[in-house]
Design a binder for these strands. Structure first.
Lengths: 140, 140
DNA sequence: TTCTAGTTTATAATTATTCTAAACTAGAAA
DNA sequence: TTTCTAGTTTAGAATAATTATAAACTAGAA
């Protein structure tokens, strides 16, 4: 029971922490993003389908775009680098790496400790390194 | 003089090697991509502008899309991983790395020998590693 | 030189995203 | 508890990148 109360607070905190007033719609979006056993990759479209499939009343796409963008800026979501022409997000915000299949264009996670770097360049003047990720392109 | 003849042959070869018949339009596109002193990043739009700015007769966008895609599939160009929603290409096909500025969303090359990896995972079953690239996200 | 499979083109269609402005609501203050 | 307003949601329009279409054109084999 306390678990659920804490989860609810967690969601409210994430919303407030992203500069967002906790509205009905945003709470529903946040539950779908953060109340999961596993992290996952998604697009605006797939998130929208996930939400409406559950029989929830549907949320306007504009709201989903705005909320996901705010969570991303606040660091609760991470935008994935791809060569596709739509945005992919990851609920796994810990530094980690990806396999990128050039055939299927699918991304899968690589555990952080599977990759080790022994040399990394300095950031350009006036900038600092925020995070480093390795993309391994694979094919058949 | 032989230099120019060789360049021309090189372009014809790249086109044939991409399964493309060397037409006037494709040769012009290829010259703009491969006859440069330095490698560079581009989008379909920037390539199109580059071509028409020189006073060349303009080439249909569809042809530019098709030709760039064929060169990419043949391995003469590389698609860049970004979080933007349009396609970026690199004429530098050698394995190399990028800084990705989250503020300006700009990509800059990192020389290959500036990064060293001491541990890399195996490719998933049935796949092989084609290439590996490190993206270092930077910010102010 | 002829012929045809392959190519180019303008334009329409599609898809992802952003914009807009009117209707709605969270939550501070009375 | 009610009122009020800044912030929010929404449907639909606008924009931008890409892909599809089908008619006119052309490289290059015969």
């Amino acid at each position: 029971m306390t678990k659920f109360i804490n989860q609810k607070n967690d969601i409210i905190n994430k919303l407030r922490g992203s500069g967002l007033r906790p509205t009905k719609q945003r709470i529903l979006i946040a539950k779908n993003l953060f109340e999961n056993n596993r992290t996952f990759h998604f697009t605006i479209d797939s998130l929208n389908k996930k939400i409406s499939k559950k029989g929830n009343e549907k949320i306007s796409l504009a709201t989903i775009y705005n909320t996901v963008e705010a969570f991303t800026e606040a660091g609760y979501l991470k935008e994935i680098l791809t060569s596709k022409n739509k945005s992919y997000y990851d609920t796994n915000i810990k530094s980690h790496h990806h396999f990128y299949d050039e055939g299927t264009k699918e991304l899968t996670d690589i555990n952080y400790n599977q990759v080790k770097l022994s040399k990394v360049p300095m950031a350009p003047k006036g900038k600092k390194i925020k995070n480093l990720e390795v993309v391994i392109r694979i094919q058949k």
